[in-house]
Amino acid sequence: MAVASKLTSLGIIVFSVALGLLSYYLMNDQSEKQKKKHVEEVISQLVNFVIFIWLAKIILNVGVFITDPLVVLAYPASSNAFYLAVLLSALLLFYKAKRKQLDMRSFMETSLHTFLVASFVYEFFQLVWNGDEYAFGYVSVLAVLLAVYFLIHGRIGRDRLIIVMLTGWTAGILILSTLQPFVAVFGYMVEVWFILLFYMISLGLHIFYQRKRGYNGN
């Protein structure tokens, strides 16, 4: 029963992300070659993130892993493992951007679109299918963010769009954290300090890329 529940949850995540990527591909007006490249980069980073999740589980439970590795690998990842995986992913993105192996602005734009759509689909499943009452607040926040995103997309510069949506998502999560016992992102409970750190790291990466490209404010 537990295995079936885990597989169902994983299936919902995969389905949600797939819809997010498909939505980006269908709604973006760039060339087919560019869209394919951006989607492939996001998928590559998602694969890296999954690897980092497994690595984080091992690092945080190294003593148990040495004696019984199967226990650690079979056990669901904790929020701490999720935090560490996000940090490792950020470091990898910074490294790739610094070596000009990644177009950070395009990656963040693609990731933002995918994340918002995938998160909405995932949380909607949690609300309707699993009856998770705490998902309602996050679904509402995501619905507002998606409405704003599609309303202003193409009307303001990509850099400003990314900053507006990052700030809006962070503000929404912080407000939710004061209204309910916890907030979960794809099933992982997130603390206020992590949300603020994630916002600063994301904004820092974006500003770093802007300066590397000689950002002129447009």
Rank of each mutant, 00 (worst) to 15 (best):
residue 162 I to V: 13
residue 162 I to W: 01
residue 163 I to D: 01
residue 163 I to C: 01
residue 163 I to K: 11
residue 164 V to F: 14
residue 165 M to E: 14
residue 165 M to C: 11
residue 166 L to A: 10
residue 166 L to H: 14
residue 166 L to N: 15
residue 167 T to W: 02
residue 168 G to M: 05
residue 168 G to K: 08
residue 169 W to I: 10
residue 170 T to K: 04
residue 170 T to G: 05
residue 170 T to W: 05
residue 171 A to S: 09
residue 171 A to Y: 07
residue 172 G to Q: 06
residue 172 G to M: 08
residue 172 G to H: 08
residue 174 L to V: 12
residue 176 L to R: 08
residue 177 S to L: 13
residue 178 T to R: 15
residue 178 T to K: 13
residue 178 T to G: 00
residue 179 L to K: 04
residue 179 L to E: 00
residue 180 Q to N: 05
residue 180 Q to I: 02
residue 181 P to N: 09
residue 181 P to H: 09
residue 182 F to R: 10
residue 183 V to P: 05
residue 185 V to Q: 07
residue 185 V to H: 06
residue 186 F to I: 14
residue 187 G to C: 03
residue 190 V to W: 07
residue 191 E to R: 05
residue 191 E to N: 07
residue 192 V to N: 10
residue 192 V to K: 09
residue 192 V to I: 15
residue 192 V to Q: 05
residue 192 V to E: 07
residue 192 V to D: 02
residue 193 W to M: 12
residue 193 W to A: 10
residue 193 W to H: 14
residue 196 L to Q: 07
residue 196 L to M: 14
residue 199 Y to C: 03
residue 200 M to Q: 09
residue 200 M to N: 08
residue 201 I to F: 01
residue 201 I to Q: 03
residue 202 S to D: 00
residue 202 S to M: 12
residue 202 S to G: 11
residue 203 L to I: 08
residue 203 L to A: 06
residue 204 G to I: 08
residue 204 G to C: 11
residue 204 G to Q: 02
residue 204 G to R: 07
residue 205 L to K: 01
residue 205 L to A: 02
